[in-house]
Design a protein around this nucleic acid. Structure first.
Lengths: 134, 134
DNA sequence: GTTTAATCCCATAAAATATATAGGGTTATA
DNA sequence: TATAACCCTATATATTTTATGGGATTAAAC
């Protein structure tokens, strides 16, 4: 399940994608469209900025805007930043791999099946972008 | 990500599937194959029994065994029992549906995309069974 | 019928994670 | 200089996950 963080992020990103090319959009405006805690959203957008999904402009007239056009930002990227691995097990994760010390990856049947699940997810999540969201 | 509960469950189910037709397998034996907390596994197997995945026999010589042959038990069933929804959002879940009060399901773009993700998962998880695990 | 080996049941403790808030600092514009 | 914005870090709160404890019940073996 997507965390609230990821859900809020997608809502904010929807606003930001719609606002593309129109300059920075302040948090206060995003929250008008999508009611949620300003402070919580602040930490989320900060995370997205540090991960190069967003840019920001400080001071009066400032706000956030997308670093790339919406069709260049896929859902997998966003989910990984806020929720971590997309794979159902660390031992089959491409971006968050960790060895499984309780099972042997060569003989472990769950491994192989969960890699299939991972791929099925990535098929969708890496193909779909913020453009599909608006 | 799969919870530990689900992971332990799959390990235990692997043992139980291999033991098919050979009578009840006690927890103590499962734990010999897959080191984990006996008490924790106990609650997991109890849950699987109450959900009609397993049967049990009490008393000396007792233990657990599969209620159906391994090829009749798919991974989606098991995950739903222990971890709940497979869908990334309740509002697109088939078995745990809840209305999304923050967004309109007709116009919400995330909804549609997450339904795609759900289906991609189910493609794999409902096709694969305990037989594929052994 | 007593011992033993198993599941059953329920409560709760402990740890980890997710969610949210607080408060001040920094920057840019008017 | 006032204002409106983001920046940063810490911490509080709530929820969920993980694990444990202590018996009660059942059935086989002796």
């Amino acid at each position: 399940m997507l965390s609230k963080k990821a859900q809020y992020a997608f809502r904010a990103l929807t606003s930001l994608a719609r606002n593309e090319g129109k300059g920075p959009l302040p948090i206060s405006n995003i929250v008008k469209e999508h009611p949620m805690s300003v402070k919580f959203l602040e930490t989320i957008l900060l995370e997205l900025r540090k991960s190069d999904i967003l840019c920001s402009k400080k001071g009066k007239g400032g706000g956030y805007f997308l670093m790339s056009p919406p069709e260049k930002i896929n859902l997998a990227q966003v989910i990984r930043i806020l929720d971590g691995p997309i794979a159902p097990l660390k031992c089959v994760s491409l971006h968050f791999y960790e060895r499984c010390d309780d099972c042997n990856e060569v003989s472990c049947g769950l491994n192989k099946l969960m890699a299939e699940v991972r791929d099925a997810n990535l098929q969708v999540l890496e193909k779909r972008t913020l453009r599909d969201l608006i």
